[in-house]
């Protein structure tokens, strides 16, 4: 009888640099998350059905009552905010996925393997980026159906989408951190709701900040979601009331999105990886 698992022969092990190892591990684990989406497409409902519902509700239920100033079309105004909301709303889902992952024995197995420590969380952020791309595409498609149009150049549109992805990627790391510190998927769901719901509503995603009470306006103006919405509206050539708001993030929406996103990634990505390593304590 031959051995159950024969000793490793020459050429069976990959030899490479640490970076090559990290990239290979991230790729293997990203494929794992994508395989899950392929097998259970309903896990995508958060980014496929939800945006359709929200866009239609705001466009046809609340839209008529919301003034955006001037003769701007609310449907055209709405989509920039909806893209941002869709991206921010994936963060609680990320947190839930991370908590669920961490509570299974699979993470213990990963931690006992000679693999990169950062790979598990990086793969999660990349897989979530794919779901965000799907969500953003759905939002844009519904937008086109209700009369939203891109009036700017193709380059500007690409710039807007790239900003949106950067923003979404940053929020994913916030969601990962949230998932690393909470103990149950229910807690992650609740906490995510409490953090991200006000974040989306106290912003210019659905209504111009000018319509809010004076004390609330600075909060809404400095909300990263307002900056993303304003940047998208500006670049798409959609109505953008923020252009007449006298606040730095409203006037420099693109720079504000980049600052916010890079800032969030710089804080939350190392923190998340630190929390992952600290599971040894």
């Amino acid at each position: 009888m031959t051995a159950i698992a024969p000793p490793l022969a020459e050429g069976e092990l990959v030899t490479g640099t640490r970076l090559g190892q990290l990239l290979s591990d991230v790729w293997v684990l990203t494929k794992r998350s994508l395989a899950r989406i392929r097998r259970e497409p309903e896990t995508l409902s958060e980014v496929t059905i939800q945006p359709v519902m929200f866009v239609l509700m705001f466009a046809y239920v609340f839209g008529g009552a919301i003034g955006i100033g001037g003769k701007g079309n609310y449907h055209e105004y709405l989509i920039g905010g909806m893209i941002g909301m869709g991206l921010a709303q994936t963060a609680p889902g990320t947190a839930v996925a991370v908590v669920s992952d961490m509570s299974t024995g699979l993470i213990d197995r990963f931690r006992s393997l000679p693999m990169s420590r950062a790979a598990v969380l990086m793969a999660r952020s990349l897989a979530d980026m794919l779901t965000q791309i799907i969500g953003t595409s759905v939002t844009a498609a519904v937008g086109l159906a209700i009369g939203w149009r891109i009036h700017g150049t193709a380059l500007q549109a690409i710039e807007a989408l790239a900003l949106a992805l950067l923003f979404g990627y940053a929020f994913t790391w916030a969601g990962i951190c949230l998932g690393m510190v909470l103990r149950s998927p229910e807690a992650a769901q609740q906490t995510g709701f409490v953090i991200f719901l006000p974040l989306t509503f106290i912003s210019s995603a659905f209504v111009p900040t000018q319509s809010m009470p004076g004390w609330l306006q600075p909060i809404a103006e400095w909300n990263p979601l307002s900056s993303l919405a304003a940047a998208c509206r500006g670049l798409f050539g959609n109505p953008n009331p923020a252009a007449s708001v006298d606040a730095w993030p409203a006037q420099h929406a693109v720079a504000a999105v980049i600052c916010w996103s890079v800032g969030l990634i710089v804080v939350f990505a190392p923190l998340a990886i630190h929390l992952y390593r600290s599971k040894n304590r």
């Binding site: 092990l13 293997v28 684990l29 395989a35 899950r36 990963f110 393997l113 000679p114 693999m115």
Partner: peptide
Amino acid sequence: EYLTGRSNLLMIGQLSRLT
């Protein structure tokens, strides 16, 4: 849970630095 039995082994094998 969502991967096949074989995919699980492939994944663990690759993460264990096997080609």
